[in-house]
Computed example of a mutant assay.
Amino acid sequence: MEAVMACWEIEQSLQSLTGVSLGEGTGATMSDDDEEQIDSDANLFDGSMEGPDSLGFGPLVPTESERSLMERVRQELKHELKQGYKEKIVDIREEILRKRRAGKLPGDTTSVLKAWWQSHSKWPYPTEEDKAKLVQETGLQLKQINNWFINQRKRNWHSNPSTSTVLKNKRKK
């Protein structure tokens, strides 16, 4: 019974999409007589898809109105899908743009940070005032400044033997 109802719903959907009503007796159930008729029709079919077959039907080519209807349905479905996934598309686009922006800082900003680093190489921990000044000079965010100094100290400061002794002396005090 569920299969019959499902077929009926599909018929109704097809009818509403195409505007073509199916004739009487084309429901979802099939009698034994219908099966015999289909078998005899299949025997008449010669198997070629080119040109008219023995029943007088040609290849199935949609009419202009059918093509127009299919295009309209396709556009409506496309629009509905876009609306349904709009937030996801925006999130993905933002993530892609964020990943593109990620990477090295501009050269003019790093030169300002490196200049501060060089002048404070013995103890490269900027005060809050120093960080605020660097934010104004570089246009970077405070978090970017903090991260740059963390990375710079990891990469360069502890590998220098003269600064490692300074670090040990600072820790003792």
Rank of each mutant, 00 (worst) to 15 (best):
R155Q: 13
V73M: 03
G51Y: 01
S16H: 02
F149H: 02
D39Y: 08
K143Q: 14
K99Y: 02
S13M: 13
E2S: 12
K88F: 07
P124T: 04
S65V: 14
I92V: 15
G19R: 02
L44A: 09
M5V: 03
P124N: 05
A102L: 03
G58Y: 02
Q15S: 14
E64P: 07
V166T: 12
E9H: 05
P106K: 09
W8L: 13
S21Q: 12
R67T: 10
E2M: 08
A28K: 03
N151W: 12
E24P: 08
N156W: 13
D53R: 07
G27C: 05
Q83S: 05
L105E: 04
K122A: 11
E94H: 06
G23Y: 08
S111V: 04
S119R: 11
A102W: 06
L140D: 04
T110P: 02
S40Q: 15
D46K: 12
R101P: 00
R171W: 07
L97N: 11
Q144K: 15
S65W: 09
T18S: 15
L134R: 09
V90M: 05
K133Q: 12
G103L: 04
D108N: 14
M30F: 14
L97Y: 03
N43R: 15
E137T: 10
I145E: 04
W123E: 04
F149R: 01
G56M: 04
K82H: 08
L113Q: 04
L22R: 14
S21T: 13
E129D: 14
E66R: 11
S21M: 09
T165I: 13
R67L: 15
F149G: 01
H158R: 13
M30Y: 07
Y85M: 08
S54W: 01
K173R: 12
Q152M: 14
D53C: 08
L97Q: 13
D46W: 07
S16L: 05
K104Q: 13
S121P: 00
S40W: 11
K104Y: 07
P161M: 04
E50W: 07
Q152R: 15
L97D: 10
Y125R: 11
Q37S: 09
D91A: 06
L105N: 02
R153N: 04
Q136M: 06
A42R: 15
L77S: 01
I89L: 09
P62S: 07
P52N: 12
N147P: 01
H79Y: 09
I96V: 15
V61M: 06
H158I: 12
I145L: 01
E9K: 10
V112T: 07
F45N: 12
V61I: 11
L55Q: 12
T110E: 12
E35Y: 06
G47M: 03
T138Y: 06
L44Y: 03
H158A: 10
M49N: 05
E11F: 14
Y125P: 00
G103C: 05
T127P: 06
E64M: 10
L105Q: 07
S16K: 07
K99E: 09
T165Q: 14
S111P: 01
G47Q: 02
W148Q: 11
E80T: 00
R155S: 13
K172C: 06
G47H: 04
P126R: 02
S119L: 08
G58M: 06
V90P: 00
